[in-house]
Design a protein around this nucleic acid. Structure first.
Length: 290
DNA sequence: ATGTCGCCTACGAGGCGA
């Protein structure tokens, strides 16, 4: 099974490229971020014509996450328990108050997390808040969002240590100095600050692994549209697939699809993909969990 | 270079977010 994550930066303006890539690369499951649309605006037909079903969570023109799959999608979760909300998103004609989920503090929850079970594997499409500037309210929101995600992941794995779970998406954190092209330019910047890196590294403490980095796949996953960042290869590595031990054990290969930043109408992010070996579970006498 | 995109509202161009 081939599973990928991709911040598509508007699915409506990118659907041709996205579906073409999925078909060409024989992708079974794709977690998308920044679909930037509501359900009725999602270009579902083009996915279905290519053999994919789609579950999505989109409230408005911001954020939005989706999962497309050739295999049946089960147990869909919108958001995760304890996910913090932010800001003052108001109900409109397009987004009635009844559709706005609020957190314990009454803040509206943004469309940044969608989970599902596919072929026995729990996959998540995550769009971590950007943070904007160190010290900005969006920055503390980002740290809190990551902390709550770590909390719920810790509890999930405490209850089910053998759960194959993949946290995939745009984490908006560059965990290592080599994940940006010039650390000198990022002094006092978001994405590289110690609290953000601590919040990201906390997932490793829970036993998760960066299943792409672990296979020594190099390179960035994002290049800003501005300032010739891609031609100069001035990018950032901020899109990751973090897997529980049971998930990591299934991974046989990984790749970052840099070519998807080229040509007409690219997203500013590229897909990150892993191959999973699931067939062996059907051939031996281990429990049939897949 | 403050260098680009994509969305919104509202029908032109400015505002927002990344």
């Amino acid at each position: 099974m081939r599973v990928a994550t991709w911040n598509v930066n508007s699915i409506r303006s990118r659907v041709g490229r996205v579906v073409d890539w999925m078909v060409r690369e024989d992708v079974d499951v794709l977690a998308m971020q920044e679909i930037k649309c509501k359900p009725e605006q999602f270009p579902l037909q083009q996915f279905e014509d290519a053999g994919y079903e789609v579950e999505l969570h989109g409230l408005n023109q911001w954020n939005g996450v989706a999962i497309a799959s050739r295999l049946p999608i089960e147990n869909v979760s919108v958001g995760f328990p304890g996910v913090p909300g932010f800001g003052t998103v108001k109900a409109t004609a397009a987004v009635p108050a009844s559709a706005v989920v609020v957190d314990d503090a009454g803040l509206p929850v943004e469309a940044r997390a969608l989970g599902a079970t596919i072929n026995g594997v729990e996959v998540w499409s995550l769009y971590v808040p950007n943070g904007r500037e160190v010290g900005d309210p969006h920055y503390s929101y980002k740290l809190e969002w990551l902390a709550r995600l770590a909390d719920v992941t810790r509890r999930r794995l405490a209850d089910q240590p053998d759960l194959a779970i993949a946290l995939m998406g745009d984490w908006n954190v560059a965990p290592r100095d080599e994940d940006v092209w010039d650390m000198a330019l990022f002094v006092n910047s978001t994405h590289v600050s110690p609290p953000e890196r601590d919040a990201f590294n906390a997932f490793f403490t829970l036993g998760l692994r960066d299943v792409v980095r672990d296979l020594d796949v190099p390179g960035y996953t994002y290049w800003d549209y501005k300032q010739l960042r891609f031609p100069r290869n001035e990018g950032m590595r901020i899109d990751f697939i973090l897997g529980s031990p049971a998930f990591a054990d299934l991974v046989t290969a990984a790749s970052i699809h840099r070519n998807e930043r080229k040509g007409e109408g690219p997203s500013d992010h590229v897909p990150v993909l892993v191959d999973l070996e699931l067939d062996s579970a059907l051939d031996d006498d281990r429990p049939m969990i897949f």
